[in-house]
């Protein structure tokens, strides 16, 4: 169970940063091949990203309590934000489906 919660928290913070990255015109174009203006969901991406990060935080605190949970979340955010940046570099097309999966 703790391992599952950790994976869930990691995935949530990855998805959260993916949303925030896709909300940026340049990264949206890299990931979708489209211009930002025509994207139907662009306005919902930042709130979606922040709330997914919130879910990640909640999972961390549920798993480890407030002090360890907060620390875990901060470091998970670091690792996953870097992971999103590297995904954008090498597999930008991967990000879009990753976000849709979380939306469903």
């Amino acid at each position: 169970m703790p391992a599952l919660l950790l994976v869930a928290a990691g995935l949530a913070s990855y998805a959260g940063f993916a949303c925030l990255a896709l909300a940026m015109a340049r990264h949206w174009t890299e990931a979708s091949g489209q211009v930002m203006d025509v994207a139907p969901h662009r306005r919902s991406l930042p709130p979606l990203g922040f709330s997914t990060l919130g879910v990640s935080y909640a999972l961390c605190v549920y798993r480890d309590g407030p002090s360890f949970g907060t620390l875990l979340w901060v470091l998970l955010c670091y690792a996953t934000a870097i992971a999103v940046a590297l995904t954008l570099t090498w597999q930008p097309r991967f990000l879009l489906p990753a976000v849709w999966r979380v939306r469903l």
Binding site: D64, F68, L71, L72, L75, L76, Y78, A79, I82
Partner: peptide, 17 residues
Amino acid sequence: QFDHWTLRWLYFLAGLS
């Protein structure tokens, strides 16, 4: 100095970064 392997590894990676 606490027992938390996930955090220990994350600290290690963050230090290397």
